[in-house]
């Protein structure tokens, strides 16, 4: 089976600064892959390269079987993206947001109407269907963003710092949605700096200063570092070379 994402010695330099330094990894289809690191460790830059938003300086990578140098437009068609800032329009209603994104991904009108029903029903958001997004609770926004990001059934969905600040139940509902999508064969790529989120991932990589410092299942990493939580693993990895530059 072709992996959903492969990266080999992928590198991005900004002038003298190497934001991403020769990272190599593979993500299998249907996997929930956690991409961890402190702010500024290079997570966002790496993800942009995989999204086709930023051209690598060197190295190879393919996403959904497409090359990140040559086939960025194809990549964009086959991935979904949800950012921490919620890419929803606050001044449109829930229904209008779904309509808009359905249109962007080129879904036919009939399909969009079907999705509106499906999506709102599936989330149990009937009462909010015609409410402006800015007026709905944070947890709902998050679940809605995710549903919209996977509305066009992408092969891979990128979640950029998805949770944080929501209540524990909503957070779990969100993860259940992710599990569901993964169980249907979608590949999930999550970047986060909340270490306890990473415990939910199948495998995680931890970036430190542009390099992948560790990559394995949370369980194996905890064993390897003799740690009780991913937070401890992370502290052990980053503390020695913690610095302010």
């Amino acid at each position: 089976m072709v992996p959903a994402i492969t990266a080999e010695k992928l590198t991005k330099k900004f002038g003298d600064f190497t934001a991403v330094n020769q990272i190599t990894f593979e993500v299998q289809k249907g996997e929930i892959f956690g991409f961890l690191g402190a702010n500024g460790a290079g997570k966002t830059t790496a993800m942009r390269m995989l999204n086709g938003l930023s051209r690598p300086t060197s190295g190879q990578a393919s996403v959904a079987g497409f090359d990140v140098y040559r086939e960025t437009e194809k990549i964009k068609k086959h991935i979904g993206y949800m950012s921490q800032k919620f890419s929803l329009y606050e001044d449109l209603t829930v229904r209008e947001n779904i309509q808009f994104y359905g249109g962007i991904y080129g879904l036919p009108g009939r399909e969009i109407r079907h999705q509106i029903k499906e999506l709102i029903g599936g989330l149990g958001m009937q009462e909010y269907a015609n409410t402006l997004v800015k007026a709905i609770p944070l947890g709902w926004k998050q679940k809605l963003s995710f549903s919209i990001a996977i509305m066009h059934r992408p092969e891979i969905v990128f979640l950029d710092e998805p949770t944080g600040g929501v209540d524990p139940i909503t957070r779990r509902q969100f993860w259940e949605m992710i599990y569901k999508a993964a169980s249907e064969g979608m590949t999930i790529f999550v970047t986060t700096h909340y270490m306890d989120e990473s415990e939910y991932c199948g495998r995680v990589s931890i970036m430190v200063d542009g390099r992948i410092a560790a990559l394995d299942t949370p369980r194996a990493l905890k064993e390897q570092f003799g740690a009780s939580s991913m937070n401890d693993v992370f502290l052990q990895l980053t503390r020695p070379n913690q610095k302010e530059s």
Binding site: N39, G164, H193
Partner: peptide, 10 residues
């Protein structure tokens, strides 16, 4: 500690 990395949080 919101939005701060784990090391700084600790």
């Amino acid at each position: 500690t919101t939005g701060v990395d784990p090391v700084s949080r600790q």
